[in-house]
Design a protein around this nucleic acid. Structure first.
Length: 493
RNA sequence: GCUCUGAUGGUGUAGUCCGGCCAAUCAUAUUACCCUCUCACGGUAAUGACCGGGGUUCAAAUCCCCGUCGGAGCACCA
C-alpha cells in the first residue's frame, strides 16, 4: 500500500520538476499575478494549475496579486477581479491571500522615497525617445546626478499630480553601460492622467511600473519562488538592482514559454475575445466557441482535467502547443463512468415503424457498465426519428439500439423479430433513434456552432448541470430545461 | 544592431546537471484488431523523435565548438 502510494507520488512528481532550494524556506510561497483585464482564457489556467500543484506538494501558500497598476493601456475590468477568482476556484484551488496592487500604492511610494534617499533613483523629464537614444549608446541622462533632495521634491510633485502624463518619470539608477540595454536605468514610476477604475485608487496619478511594483511586493509578501513567462525573463535582472539597494534576497525564479492551443479559431488573447464579444460575434465569455475557462466550464469540462493537462506541459522555457484532445481525454476519464446514456437524433428523418409483433418500446440501459442503474423506456409509437446518415438502403436491416431489428422497406421500418445475433454475427449496424412524436427538443451548443435535434423522453428527467452522453455523439452538459425543450453544451466526443 | 533563451515522434513529456542500463520513457493522437446492442469505456498491437555539421571519448540525446531555426527583451504595457 505504501509502495503503491510512493509509486503514484513519483509518477506525479515526474511531470513537474522539484522547485529549487525549497529546503531553505520555512514555507514555500507562490503567487499568481494576473492583470485583471478580463476573465481568463485557457492559457491562463497554467499559472494556477502549476502553482496550486506545487502548493499542495510542499504544503505551501498560494497568493493571488492583481497587478493592476496601469489604468490606461491595460485598464482593469472591474468585474474581472471576481471572475478570475472564480476561475481559480473552478480549477480547484483556493488562494491563501489576495492582494490588489492598486491598494498598495502608498507602499510603493514609501519604498521609492527610501530608494531616492539612497541615491538609487532619479526623476527624469527626458522624453522617452530621447532617453532611449541615449541609452542605446550608454550615455547617462543629464538628470542622473541630481541630488536626492531635488529628486525627492520632484517625486513628491509627481505623487501630487503636478505633472501630466509623459512629463516626468522616476528611473532606477542601474548601470547605464550594462551590456544588456534592457536593464539600463529603467522606469519605476510614470504619470497617468486617466483615473483608475477602482474608486479606492481613482485619485492616484503617479503609478509604479510592473518591475518596481512586482519586485517590491514579491519581497514584502514573502514570495519564495516566482514562476513567470519568458516575456518577463529580464525582470529578475532589472529588479535585482532594487533588491541590491535594499539589501534583499531575490526569490528563486523559473520561466516558461507561451501556450498555444489547437482546436480554436480564436486567438488566445483577452483583448481579442473581448472585442468579439463587444461586436456580438460571441455571446459572452462562456460562449462555447470562446477559448475561455468560463466556456469550457459551461461545457462541463472539469477544472481538474485542465489542471492535469497543464501539469503535463511541464516547465520548459520553450513555447508549447496544448492539444485540446489532451484535456478531453483527461475529462472523459473523469466523467464517463457517471454519465448516463441517452439518445439524441440530430435533424431527424421520420420513418414509420410497422409490423404485427413489433414491441411497444425500447429499453436501452442508462449505462452499459452499470446495469444496476436500470433501463430507460422509449416508447416507439407509430414512427421514429433517425439521423439521415443512418438510414439504411432499401431492403437492408438496421438495429434500433435497445429496441430491435427492423428492415427498411418502402420508406418504412418493418420489425423483423431477429435476435441480437443479427448484430453479433450478421453485421447489422446499430443506430440510435427517438420516437417521432414524443421527444424533447434539444439545442446543442458546440464550439462549431449550434445543432438542433430531438432527445428521447427520459432525457427530460435529467438535472441541470448533469453530464450525460448522447450515444454515438458525445458528452454534453445539461444547461437548462423548459417544457419539452432543453439546451445542452457539447463537452467532447 | 545589442542582450537573453531554447531545440527529443503529430502534440506534450522523461532522460541532459554526474556520458555507457537509451536500438530513448510515459501520455495523448492516428490506424488495426478484441470486447461491446455507442464512433464511449476497457484490452492488444502498430505508427512515429534525439535540429545540422564537426570535435572529445572505447562509448554522446547527454560534454565542447560552429552553424541553422525558433521564442523573448531592449515601452512612461502587464
Amino acid at each position: 500500500m505504501v509502495d503503491e502510494l510512493d509509486a503514484e507520488n513519483e509518477a506525479d512528481e515526474h511531470t513537474l520538476p522539484d522547485l529549487p532550494n525549497v529546503e531553505e524556506y520555512d514555507t514555500v510561497r507562490l503567487r499568481a499575478a494576473p492583470n485583471p483585464n478580463g476573465p481568463w482564457h485557457l492559457g491562463h489556467a497554467r499559472m494556477p494549475s502549476v502553482i496550486g500543484t506545487y502548493t499542495e506538494r510542499y504544503d505551501g501558500e498560494f497568493v493571488v496579486r492583481f497587478d493592476d497598476t496601469d489604468p490606461e493601456t491595460k485598464r482593469p475590468d472591474l468585474s474581472a477581479y471576481d471572475a478570475i477568482l472564480e476561475d481559480i476556484d473552478y480549477l480547484g484551488f483556493e488562494p491563501d491571500e489576495v492582494y490588489r496592487a492598486s491598494d498598495r500604492v502608498e507602499t510603493y511610494y514609501d519604498h521609492a522615497r527610501e530608494l531616492i534617499e539612497m541615491g538609487g533613483a532619479y526623476t527624469c523629464d527626458l522624453p522617452a525617445q530621447e532617453f532611449s537614444a541615449l541609452k542605446k549608446e550608454g550615455t547617462p541622462s543629464p538628470n542622473r546626478d541630481k541630488d536626492p533632495e531635488t529628486v525627492l521634491e520632484e517625486f513628491e510633485a509627481m505623487i501630487d499630480g503636478d505633472y501630466e502624463s509623459g512629463e516626468m518619470v522616476l528611473r532606477v539608477k542601474t548601470d547605464i553601460e550594462h551590456k544588456n540595454p534592457a536593464l539600463r536605468d529603467w522606469v519605476a514610476f510614470r504619470m497617468i492622467d486617466t483615473p483608475h477604475p477602482r474608486e479606492e485608487a481613482a485619485d492616484y496619478r503617479c503609478w509604479p511600473m510592473l518591475d518596481f511594483q512586482s519586485g517590491i511586493d514579491d519581497h514584502l509578501t514573502g514570495i519564495t519562488h516566482i514562476i513567470r513567462g519568458i516575456d518577463l525573463q529580464d525582470s529578475a535582472k532589472r529588479q535585482q538592482f532594487v533588491y541590491d539597494y535594499f539589501d534583499w534576497e531575490y526569490p528563486e525564479v523559473l520561466h516558461w514559454g507561451h501556450v498555444q492551443l489547437d482546436a480554436y479559431d480564436i486567438k488566445l488573447s483577452t483583448s481579442t475575445i473581448k472585442e468579439l464579444i463587444d461586436d456580438g460575434e460571441l455571446d459572452g465569455w462562456d460562449d462555447p466557441r470562446a477559448p475561455t475557462l468560463q466556456s469550457v466550464r459551461r461545457r462541463g469540462i472539469r477544472g481538474e482535467a485542465i489542471v492535469e493537462s497543464m501539469i503535463g506541459l511541464g516547465m520548459s522555457t520553450s513555447d508549447v502547443d496544448l492539444a485540446m484532445s489532451s484535456i478531453y481525454a483527461n475529462n472523459r476519464e473523469l466523467v464517463d463512468d457517471e454519465s448516463n446514456r441517452y439518445f439524441l437524433v440530430r435533424g431527424g428523418q421520420r420513418v414509420p415503424v410497422v409490423g404485427e409483433d413489433k414491441p411497444a418500446a425500447g429499453h436501452p440501459p442508462l449505462h452499459p457498465n452499470h446495469e444496476d442503474r436500470g433501463d430507460r423506456e422509449i416508447p416507439v409509437g407509430d414512427a421514429v426519428l433517425v439521423e439521415a446518415d443512418d438510414l439504411p438502403s432499401e431492403g437492408e436491416r438496421i438495429w434500433l439500439k435497445g429496441y430491435g431489428c427492423v428492415r427498411y422497406v418502402d420508406e418504412e421500418f418493418v420489425a423483423t423479430g431477429d435476435d441480437i445475433s443479427a448484430v453479433r454475427e450478421e453485421g447489422v449496424e446499430v443506430i440510435h433513434w427517438v420516437p417521432a412524436d414524443d421527444t424533447v427538443a434539444v439545442t446543442m451548443r458546440t464550439p462549431d456552432g449550434d445543432v438542433t435535434g430531438h432527445a428521447e423522453p427520459a432525457f427530460g428527467d435529467t438535472a441541470v448541470d448533469e453530464i450525460v452522453q448522447f450515444e454515438r455523439i458525445g458528452f454534453v452538459r445539461v444547461d437548462r430545461h423548459a417544457d419539452n425543450e432543453a439546451v445542452v453544451y457539447y463537452t467532447h466526443p
